[in-house]
Computed example of a mutant assay.
Amino acid sequence: MELTVIWFIAISVLWTGYFVLEGFDFGVGTLMSFMGGRDSVDRRVALNSIGPVWDANEVWLITALGATFAAFPAWYASLLSGFYAPMFLILVALILRGVAFEYRGKRDSAPWRAWWDRAILLGSVLPAFLWGVVFANIVRGVAMDADQVVTASVPDLLNPYALLGGLTTLSLFTLHGAVFLTLKTDGPVRVRARRAALWAACAAVPSGTLFLAWTQLAHGGGTRTLPLVLIAATALVGGVAAAWHRREGWSFAFTAVTVLTVFAALFGSLFPNVLPSTTDPAFGLTVSNASSAEYTLTLMSWVAVVFLPLVLLYQGWSYWVFRRRVTGETVTGATVTRGEDRDGRPEPAV
């Protein structure tokens, strides 16, 4: 197998791993404001469920972008220039979200925390939607000239297929995050998260099904991607059914498989292209004309063989260390009366 193909697969794995892990982070951030009252311990419970892992999950994004730059520099250049507006908004949202995570608890003030909660919501919803828009356009293709410069405008990127892709990733990540909360928390947050998962499924199932069908029919790789599409649809339904029956571990496994196979199907539909051209297929980028020199790919392969297992072992260890459920007692260090917030005010009934 050629190194260009191996690195296309490797980059696909890195991007897919990022969305599986960061997907539930986005979902938790989207739902956090709905997990309790304005000054609620329950919001802190939701936030603490991803506190030890959210920044480690973002390392997958840095690695995926770095690998894309090193292995396929022309692809990287086209992505960051042709998709400048959505990529810039994603970057700003991720920065805002990270700052909000760190600064939310710096002052004991309900208005202070409320503003940062809004920042977490915006910093989670915006990337969850825009990543779907970006990757749908990558699979669909964009207008490019003979010099392989993307000429598509922002309105061109907001086509119906891409908007459906954004709705699919937003609803799917919200479902994934809600299921994660049922698995990682206890008490009122767990109850609310289970309810949120069932509501998120009302959007994720129809949008995901339509998006997968559209992808397979219009842009799919035939028999190469059909099994992945079927697995994704089956896992999505299975995750919702498991959530309904309160099988939280199975539900999270199913939603993780759904995210994994959706993006695997997108990359499978894309290959051997990396960015098709809707102007003229000859203007598009492929694994052959967008790749680095063989020496660069060989050196990268040896670096990956040495360091990637270490990174995976460390991240797996961190998840194992922080595997316990988060409750109000664990975040306050004291017994919290169920149905009351930190200041003793009654919370809305669950």
Rank of each mutant, 00 (worst) to 15 (best):
I11K: 03
V13G: 04
L14V: 06
L14D: 01
F19Y: 11
G23E: 00
F24N: 05
G29T: 02
G36K: 10
V41Y: 06
R43E: 03
N48S: 14
I50L: 07
G51V: 05
E58Y: 02
L65Q: 09
L65C: 14
A67L: 08
T68Y: 01
T68G: 06
P73V: 14
W75R: 13
A77H: 03
L79W: 00
G82L: 00
M87I: 12
F88P: 06
L91D: 04
F101M: 09
F101W: 09
S109N: 07
R113Y: 09
W116F: 12
R118D: 14
L121C: 05
L122S: 10
G132F: 10
M144F: 00
D147T: 13
A152E: 01
A162T: 03
S171Q: 05
A178T: 06
K184H: 05
V189A: 00
R194M: 10
A201T: 03
V205E: 11
S207E: 02
L217I: 15
G220A: 02
L228W: 05
L228Q: 04
L228Y: 04
I231D: 06
V237W: 15
W244G: 14
H245Y: 14
R246Y: 13
A253R: 10
T258Q: 11
V262K: 13
F271H: 15
P272E: 11
F283M: 11
T286S: 13
S288N: 15
N289P: 09
A290Y: 12
S292K: 11
S292V: 05
Y295M: 00
T296F: 03
A304M: 13
F307M: 10
P309M: 06
L310N: 10
L310F: 07
Q315W: 06
S318Q: 14
V321C: 01
R325K: 14
V326M: 04
G328P: 02
T332N: 11
P348E: 15
V350P: 08
V350W: 00
